[in-house]
Amino acid sequence: MGNTQWYLFDYGMVITDAPTPEDWLNLEDAAGVPLMDPGSPYWQHRLEFDAGRYTSVEYWSRVTGREVPESRTDLLDTLDANQWSHFNLDTLDVLEELSGQGARLALLSNMPAPMVSRFEQASWTGYFQRRYFSSKLSLVKPQREIFEHVLRDLAVEPGMVTFVDDNPANVAAAQDVGLDARLHQPGIDLQRELVPRS
């Protein structure tokens, strides 16, 4: 196993900020049901969508409680991707700095296939030498197996990976595998969170 340091970043709420209320209203208007609440069908079925076990038609039909035609899901997928596209400029500055220093950067995101296809050629993906998406792996955080897959692919010991995520469950799971996992809290300076621990 290699001894090269890697920085592994989550996407939503680390590289991006939260969707705005206007974003949610636009998506709710298109879907015809309330979605913003943490207990809404949007979130109840999300991990299955992220894992690639639902198509867009299956996911949005479950979210709305009625059959949604494929012609409609393209709009819903687009609005969904748009609301997760408000970049955290402080994080982008950190990625730029790390990249300029020659650091090895990777991405690990729970992300459904339609969103992956929209983002794969986006300019921000150029920071990352490796990109891991749940829908392509049929695994989701916080499953232990997704972190084990990343480690095998990077061919490094767990302690050589600094992982940054906003979800405490994902951070705890990564720590259980041995990664140097840091909880990113919105509004906290990411640069400070990445300072090596003594």
Rank of each mutant, 00 (worst) to 15 (best):
P112C: 12
D37N: 04
T78E: 08
N82Y: 01
M111L: 15
K141G: 06
L107Y: 08
R182T: 02
D165G: 09
S61C: 05
T55F: 07
D90Y: 04
Q143W: 03
P69F: 02
Y11Q: 04
S123R: 15
F133D: 00
G178L: 08
D29G: 07
V33Y: 00
L89F: 05
Y42S: 01
T162C: 14
F119G: 01
G32D: 02
S135H: 04
G32A: 06
A169T: 05
A172T: 05
R66D: 00
P38K: 14
A172M: 05
L8C: 06
L75K: 13
V171A: 11
Q175Y: 04
R152Q: 09
G100L: 12
L27I: 03
L179A: 10
L137T: 02
R66Y: 04
R130D: 01
R118I: 03
R46H: 09
E120G: 08
Y54V: 04
D153I: 09
F119I: 03
H149E: 07
H45K: 09
S71Q: 12
T78L: 15
P168I: 05
Y11H: 14
D77R: 08
E58V: 13
L27K: 02
V94L: 11
S56M: 05
F128R: 12
R118Q: 09
D10H: 14
V195Y: 05
W43L: 03
L151E: 00
P168C: 07
E67V: 12
V14Q: 09
D93T: 13
N110V: 10
A103P: 00
A18T: 06
A172N: 04
E145P: 02
D176L: 11
R197D: 03
T91C: 12
E67A: 12
L27E: 01
L107A: 11
Q175A: 15
W60V: 08
F163W: 05
A181F: 12
V161I: 03
Q185E: 11
E145K: 10
L89V: 07
I146T: 05
V177E: 03
S109K: 11
V177T: 08
H45V: 06
P186A: 15
T162A: 08
A31P: 00
S123W: 14
D153Q: 10
A113T: 03
F49E: 00
E148F: 04
E70P: 00
D180W: 13
L107T: 03
R46I: 01
A81R: 13
V33W: 04
E48M: 08
V68C: 07
Q101M: 14
L194I: 10
E148G: 03
P34N: 03
T64W: 01
D17Q: 14
F87V: 06
L76Q: 01
E67N: 12
M111F: 04
L190F: 06
D37T: 00
F49V: 07
D93R: 15
N82V: 07
S123V: 13
M1W: 08
F147K: 09
F49G: 06
S135L: 10
R182W: 01
S99W: 06
D37G: 02
K141D: 01
A172G: 03
R144P: 00
